[in-house]
């Protein structure tokens, strides 16, 4: 994700678009809580370059009031992005060849009043002065190498991607209520697309 940010900064052509998105996010930041809290996978692709699949995806995170309140009260929010390679079978249930999970963490730094997005897989973190920027960065997956997937499969495969708030990573006393509170049920649709060999 940090790499992605860097790439964005380096990419001159993306700058107007990026600024527009950031502007829109900033304008809508006050009304953010009014939006329906949800996670939506907008786009996702797996491109094969240099014998490695690279994951690119755009996920729209919209937090609920409960989640934002908890974040501002020192509670770290953990999000998981799950990638699966699925073999579609006509007469049997689909076979999952690869199940990969990319955990991310979002926390609020009270002293610095900034939002930290951590990639716990690569132990990287980045700071953002606004929640919208942090969520935008959280939802932008760029060229993440997936080494465990090979393209030597002869059968038809699909890739699926979904993202969700990991309630089990919340502090223990919060979990029972989180499981039954709508605001804490943040889970995206499963975005599925055919995997190109």
């Amino acid at each position: 994700m940090l790499n992605k940010n860097l790439n964005q900064l380096h990419s001159y052509h993306c700058i107007p678009c990026f600024v527009l998105i950031i502007s829109l996010l900033c304008v809508s930041v006050n009304s953010f809580a009014d939006e329906n809290p949800s996670i939506t996978v907008k786009t996702a692709t797996l491109s094969f370059q240099d014998k490695t699949y690279l994951l690119n995806a755009h996920i729209n995170y919209s937090l609920s009031d409960e989640a934002i309140e908890a974040l501002h009260n020192g509670v770290s929010l953990s999000f998981n992005v799950d990638l699966s390679i699925i073999e579609s079978r006509r007469w049997l249930w689909n076979k999952h060849h690869n199940n990969l999970s990319f955990p991310y963490q979002l926390r609020y730094h009270t002293l610095a009043e900034i939002y930290q997005v951590s990639d716990t897989t690569n132990n990287l973190q980045h700071n953002f002065s606004s929640l919208s920027a942090a969520l935008n960065a959280l939802g932008t997956l760029s060229d993440i190498p997936i080494h465990s997937i090979t393209n030597d499969n002869n059968f038809k495969t699909n890739a699926s991607l979904k993202a969700y708030l990991n309630i089990e990573a919340l502090p223990l006393p919060m979990r029972p209520l989180a499981y039954v509170t709508r605001g804490w049920y943040l889970r995206s649709n499963t975005f599925e697309w055919p995997l190109a060999h």
Partner: peptide
């Protein structure tokens, strides 16, 4: 590098 919102500010 600064994030987008910082740069905007």
């Amino acid at each position: 590098t600064p994030d987008s919102s910082t740069l905007l500010l």
